[in-house]
Design a protein around this nucleic acid. Structure first.
Lengths: 200, 200
DNA sequence: GCTAAAAGCTAACGCCATTAACCAGAGCTG
DNA sequence: CAGCTCTGGTTAATGGCGTTAGCTTTTAGC
């Protein structure tokens, strides 16, 4: 009975890959064990159970997304940084729909939860983008939430085939990024001069 | 053996209510049957199974959301309509997290799928909002997708307690709506004059 | 080499979704 | 009013999945 040589990281990585292939809802302990050439109960030597497994997959996904966005942003600022970050994030979600889906609805249990740290890193990558638009400090958190909502929403909807109409999705995404860029530049200008009027 | 007097609509309504209480992932046929004072297999006389049940819950949720947004928008235009629609949508998702969660990742099987019709109605409600900003026709679909991504993303993230920091979430939402409004007004102005320059 | 922890296995349990087969009651029909 | 039938309920059974318990074998450290 040769050993398979598994460890938690290998199990989580295989689980994430399988989730990308079949969807996180169809990720079953049995199928993952089969993929790893092992019997189902053996997995419990490495992860606490299904809940723990998807949690670790979510941590992995957030970390990878943070890396991808952070890497894409390097050397760019302003609109270019925003575009690069947006593209990197969306590409990641589309390339890894299962592991990203594992992150939605995942709540961090405490301040020392690795999930919280991974989330912070991803937020930090977007924060770096915002630094290129010199927003008032009071608005940074709002802008961050806006970007997160926008990109998370778009990626989630596209990943779920939520856009029925056949209009070009890449074109919509580019429009959306340009929209966010214009808005952020306007908001940064508002820090210098008077804010844009409420009624044109 | 007195009859419970169930019908598909009653089962779906009870399922949606239960999903709101315990989350769509914990919505089990057994718990729903117990809630209805009936044995589990009896549910199969009214719905085709769990897949069919959550599908019907999603249709119900989309229809209710469309009603709520459509009602909120009545009599308003422009920024007021956008704010009313945004508020109505978010309130709905937060009040009914379970049934809304049933809609994500739900793909309509064909053109005569009731799910498609319900989705169209919700989109139509947001389309009415966009009519207040006279965008070029070519941009309407992009703007629609932007609004959908933005609101879906925000509501989903908040519903999942995804915003860790304590900064006021209502304030962020108001900022986000104002941001979208400014951007849409700029886009409508772009239809008249030249578009805003790429580099300031 | 010996020992002990780690990593695998089989067996068993319980929950859940689903199906089959059966039964009672309500309403229509004669 | 008697009876038939359709409907909405029932119990029983099946199969899949997650999980736990207990055993065994390999590996690593002394």
């Amino acid at each position: 009975m040769p050993r398979a040589g598994l460890d938690p990281a290998a199990v989580v990585a295989a689980g994430a890959a399988l989730a990308d292939e079949v969807g996180v809802a169809q990720l079953t302990m049995g199928s993952l064990a089969e993929r790893l050439g092992v019997r189902t109960p053996s997995l419990y030597k490495h992860v606490g159970g299904q809940e723990d497994l998807t949690r670790r997959i979510a941590v992995l996904a957030l970390g990878e997304a943070a890396d991808a966005v952070g890497r894409a942003v390097q050397g760019y600022a302003g609109r270019d940084a925003l575009g690069a970050a947006a593209r990197a994030f969306r590409d990641f979600v589309l390339a890894h729909p299962g592991r990203y889906a594992a992150t939605v609805g995942m709540e961090s249990t405490g301040p020392d939860d690795p999930l919280a740290a991974a989330g912070e890193r991803l937020l930090g990558a977007f924060m770096a983008v915002l630094r290129g638009y010199d927003l008032p400090d009071s608005e940074t958190v709002h802008a961050l939430r806006m970007l997160r909502s926008l990109f998370h929403g778009f990626a989630t909807l596209q990943s779920a085939s939520g856009f029925r109409w056949s209009a070009d999705i890449d074109e919509s995404f580019a429009w959306l990024v340009a929209f966010a860029d214009r808005g952020l530049r306007a908001a940064s200008r508002a820090a210098d001069g008077p804010p844009p009027p409420g009624q044109p």
